[in-house]
Nucleic acid binder design. Structure first.
Length: 596
RNA sequence: GGGGGCGUAGCUCAGUUUGGUUAGAGCGCCGGCCUGUCACGCCGGAGGUCGCGAGUUCGAGUCUCGUCGCUCCCGCCA
């Protein structure tokens, strides 16, 4: 039963044959998608990665082979030799690329049997993700996943081709490296040869690619795995892939131009849509002002509007007190939404509460009057100013957020995206790119009572802001840039610090003393002092980019073997406990093991 | 660390609100019949630790508590 290939070798894939091939002797190999046994003639839909071809076993044409075909079941792996025949009149299948023909089988080899699959190899059945991930090798046979994974390959190939042509060198960097402070939690790997010491898996090859610039390679790239031990999301995996690049003797414009060329090359390859650089630009400040988020979805309007100045002295204490305490009041005019029910508005209040907004004020604009619990608190003057600035027309529904800027911007920005979807304002076929520039260099961390780098500590400050390092770090801008596509951050980078003294001053601003930065970044500082060229780069989240290009909602649909939200691999049951012998070799002791 | 959703046949789900006979359906699977189907058709059949564990009760898929897993989100992710 378990035939070997013998002298059979595949002549065509299962989507290759058409009417023009009629009469040809062919050999096809693949998996049995479906068997239709009519008692006499047996039809089999044979599937390989390229498509499906119907093969036919006819007792009148070859009784022995027809007999053998009775044993075939779903997902058996078979090889067939036969003649391509045009299907009889009226028997063609227009839904199949190969629907004009079929292969009349003269020789059958059953290469392997298969258990009945736990779910059907079809796109339309939606299966529990548990079951899918536990049987990922079967899940991956489904056409949609095959398509995603193959598109991912083509995108990666296009990226490599483009970067190779632009003079970038593909250079590998280590996975077993050193834990760096700041940023995400590291995955640690114990060192057997140095008990008690640990490697860290890289969050990104950041410092290595800078060192490669200092070494004189001038242009580097790598499609590389990165690791971050943080909680997962629909768009976040513990290990993920970056298209990472770095260039010497460049400024922002040079990196952004190469990045645009790269993205355009990828889009051209996957044939999705033309991405035509140069992409739009927006400063961080403008993005926050107009959209509330540093990753604005610019496919639709519905922009936020600051009205703090109008309501600063108003009788509505929620607004005026917020402004007095340094907060802001922003509004969002949902055009024509006055018809929303009280229940719907309450749902929006719940929606923004998730982002720590304490409430959501609103005004329904009716002909000649405002319907709202807060209207009575405003003076005529204030109302007129609001109406003018927000262009309030009858039929509009205006939402207000009042709180500290981070909360107002985040909650109203998310509400804006939510409304954009709910109201159908988003053109699903549009690809809206925008560069976000002029990020702040630092932000103040209230819990840790110190400054933190918004991007990372190796990002160069804007040269004209360097003087503020000691006096007013929060007002400094950095030379960082993010590329945003349809409201999703797909890449980010910066011009790096290439002078030791500047790097030292930045590390000091982050609260490190000399002993600490020498211990943690001594190698970098020494390298910067050895003839470091001005350099900068960018990294793209390849999985996220593919999620958008494949038009799917989960990053797991573009990764062959993804992990669950708790970082488990349901196929291999990783992570798993280590044996006492392994632990002992590593000099480790597990403090407590629960469960059984 | 926190909040929401889900877990019943191989798969998708109904049944849970209001506890009560032997837990159902579709698909799939197995067997039989069938020579032109392509979601083939017809007939018959098998298949269940209702995620797991306690508790309440004469009686639990259904109520209570705990727990595990998957998922979405907040925090986190320079």
């Amino acid at each position: 039963m378990n035939d070997t290939l013998g002298d059979m070798r595949r002549s065509h894939h299962c989507n290759a044959l058409g009417a023009a091939d009629a009469g040809a002797q062919v050999v096809l190999m693949g998996w049995v998608q479906r068997r239709r046994d009519h008692g006499g003639v047996i039809f089999i839909d044979l599937r390989d990665r390229e498509g499906i071809t119907q093969v036919v076993f006819n007792p009148d044409r070859n009784a022995a082979v027809h007999e053998k075909a009775h044993a075939i079941r779903s997902e058996y792996v078979i090889a067939v030799r036969g003649v391509v025949e045009k299907r009889p009149e009226g028997m063609t299948n227009p839904l199949l690329a190969t629907g004009e023909i079929e292969v009349m089988v003269s020789e059958l080899k059953i290469l392997n049997r298969a258990q009945t699959p736990p779910f059907m190899i079809e796109d339309q059945v939606d299966v529990n993700e548990n079951t899918r991930l536990a049987n990922r090798h079967i899940d991956l046979r489904r056409p949609s996943l095959q398509k995603n994974i193959m598109m991912r390959h083509r995108a990666a190939a296009a990226a490599r081709r483009y970067l190779n042509d632009q003079g970038f060198l593909d250079i590998e960097t280590p996975f077993l490296t050193r834990s760096t402070p700041e940023g995400a939690r590291d995955y640690l790997v114990p060192s057997r040869l140095n008990p008690g010491s640990f490697y860290a898996l890289p969050q990104s090859p950041q410092l290595f690619k800078q060192l490669l610039m200092i070494s004189g390679f001038e242009r580097y790239y790598q499609i590389v795995h990165c690791f971050r031990d943080e909680d997962l999301r629909a768009d976040r995996q513990p290990e993920f892939t970056q298209i990472d690049m770095e260039m010497s003797f460049v400024g922002e414009e040079d990196v952004m131009a190469e990045a645009e060329g790269l993205i355009a090359a990828i889009f051209r390859e996957v044939g999705r849509i033309e991405a035509s650089p140069p992409f739009a630009r927006m400063t961080y400040q403008e993005a926050m002002d107009r959209y509330g988020l540093d990753r604005p979805d610019t496919r639709f309007g519905l922009e936020l509007c600051d009205i703090s100045d109008i309501v600063a002295e108003s009788g509505f204490n929620v607004f005026s007190n917020t402004v007095k305490k340094g907060g802001i009041v922003k509004a969002l005019n949902a055009r024509g939404c006055a018809g929303f029910t009280r229940k719907e508005i309450d749902d929006f209040t719940d929606f923004v509460a998730v982002y720590r907004a304490k409430g959501l004020a609103w005004i329904r604009v009716k002909e000649g009057e405002w319907q709202s619990p807060i209207t009575k608190f405003f003076s005529e003057e204030e109302k007129q100013a609001m109406a003018a600035r927000l262009d309030m027309q009858p039929g509009d529904l205006v939402f207000f957020g009042a709180d500290q800027p981070v909360i107002v911007n985040e909650s109203l920005g998310q509400l804006r995206n939510h409304l954009g979807k709910k109201l159908g304002l988003i053109d699903e076929n549009a690809y809206a790119f925008v560069w976000i520039t002029d990020f702040p260099m630092f932000e103040y961390d209230e819990t840790e009572k110190r400054y933190q780098a918004l991007h990372h500590p190796f990002t160069a400050p804007a040269e004209e802001d360097l003087a503020k390092l000691a006096s007013d770090p929060v007002s400094m801008r950095s030379r960082a840039y993010d590329l945003v596509l349809n409201g999703s951050e797909i890449g980010g980078g910066s011009i790096r610090i290439h002078q030791k003294d500047v790097q030292v001053r930045v590390l000091e601003a982050l609260g490190m003393d000399r002993a600490e930065y020498e211990e943690k970044f001594g190698f970098l500082l020494s390298a910067l002092d050895s003839g470091a060229p001005p350099h900068g780069g960018i990294a793209f989240g390849f999985d996220r980019l593919m999620t958008i290009l494949c038009n799917t909602s989960s990053i797991r649909e573009v990764i062959a073997f993804p992990k669950t939200q708790k970082g488990a691999c349901l196929m291999t049951a990783a992570p798993a406990s280590a044996t006492p012998a392994q632990l002992s070799e590593l000099g480790l002791k597990v403090r407590r093991v629960e469960q059984s």
